[in-house]
Design a protein around this nucleic acid. Structure first.
Ligand SMILES: [Mn+2]
Ligand SMILES: [Mn+2]
Ligand SMILES: [Mn+2]
Ligand SMILES: [Mn+2]
Lengths: 218, 218
DNA sequence: ACAAATTTTTAGGCAAGGCTAAGTTTGTGT
DNA sequence: ACACAAACTTAGCCTTGCCTAAAAATTTGT
């Protein structure tokens, strides 16, 4: 597996997660900031290697083998992100770029030992689940904060958008994973929310609420 | 800098260390298990980028910029080796291959933090010095065990050959860095030595002695 | 000094992974 | 039903890094 092949597989996996149908050439190209024609070339190669199912003009989906490869790369990516935060004091908005490089290092022993060093973490710094050695992972049952009813609340367990700018915004506003957030009011006009975190209350836009996952406490 | 360029620069640095003259195309090719014609191609590219001094048929040497790049890659390689041994319990014969991959990860912050995590080590698991951020490093004054006079001894501080087979041999014979080794006898016929380590004595071939560095205790 | 051996370079190609421009196929609106 | 737009593929080209075979420069041996 080349670095490029791994990146395509990973992208196809991620796009495929939301909406189960075949993944389109264009969506892959957009995600990877490359051209559709390049995607077609690569997809043929992946198909020859039995990593994806592909019929011309019909989009693409991962085979079982392809899924295994994707989960392996994602496992590495997320473990390295944990390493960077836990052991090297990176902040959660700095880790992704470096993990994009580290995820391609080839050594089973390395990744197993890293897992052990980090104490077998189940989630990465953004709240995303880390597949285990066999590709199994627990998707937490979570809800976007924007869909939580007024009066309810939950523990913040993840972000949907994990861009540096969003993460920095959260830092600046003292919103972090693990905190209990309560929806106090919802403004009909623009969907903005008044939320309670710890002792303080804050107003956040719909945009923000629609990118924060919480685990509902009934 | 591409991965390939970094590997060439590093190789030129290493060959250049023993014997100060210009490095030959053939020696680079041999070391990198590639062909001389490929070396010529790359060397031209490196010359264009001001990383090496090159005149046709005259061999090649690193510029100041090239030396800086080489030391940067070597710093990364050796720090990762320390990480693998100290934090992930790799043995010293397993680290090189993985470090060959890790040395190309691009992130200054990563390497600085790794250095800190490891407590600013000065030497790697094979006793080789780790350049600091500015490329400075302390070459220990050391001597091959094969050149130590009978009756003298010193602390084992490094290996010349760091192939897995040699390192495994040392492990099997309980020879490790940090141990005090005394040369008790030297056999004229084949250059083999009788050495004392701790309480025991052992016979080792010239081959072995010529690949072990010790720091003489006067 | 000079022919032979060795080293190094050049010429011409190949595979991977991109791109642009030009076809095909598919889906949509009327 | 069918024209047209959008999506997708193909054709042909580029760069990087590598190769083989052939040519050129340098070194060596006598
Ligand atoms: Mn990430
Ligand atoms: Mn993440
Ligand atoms: Mn090494
Ligand atoms: Mn080493």
């Amino acid at each position: 597996m080349t670095r490029s092949e791994e990146n395509y597989i990973k992208t196809i996996f991620h796009i495929g997660r939301q909406g189960q149908e075949a993944v389109s050439t264009n969506s892959i190209a957009e995600q990877m900031e490359t051209k559709p024609s390049s995607v077609t070339d690569m997809v043929k190669k992946l198909s020859d290697k039995n990593l994806v199912n592909y019929k011309r003009y019909q989009g693409v989906s991962l085979t079982d083998l392809g899924t295994k490869v994707a989960l392996g790369v994602i496992r590495k990516h997320r473990l390295w992100e944990v390493f960077l935060v836990e052991k090297l004091d990176f902040s959660w908005d700095e880790v992704h770029e470096v993990a994009e490089q580290l995820e391609h290092i080839k050594s089973d022993k390395l990744i197993d030992r890293l897992d052990r060093l980090l104490n077998y973490p189940k989630y990465d710094p953004h709240g995303d689940p880390i597949p285990d050695k066999d590709g199994g992972f627990e998707e937490r049952d979570k809800k976007l904060l924007s869909e939580v009813a007024v009066g309810e609340g939950g523990v913040c367990v993840g972000v949907k958008d994990s861009s540096a700018s969003f993460l920095k915004f959260l830092d600046k506003n003292n919103i972090a994973l693990g905190q209990f957030i309560q929806v106090l009011e919802m403004e009909e006009f623009d969907g903005s929310l008044v939320i309670g975190i710890g002792d303080s209350t804050r107003q956040i836009s719909h945009q923000i609420a629609a990118n924060l996952y919480v685990k509902i406490k009934e």
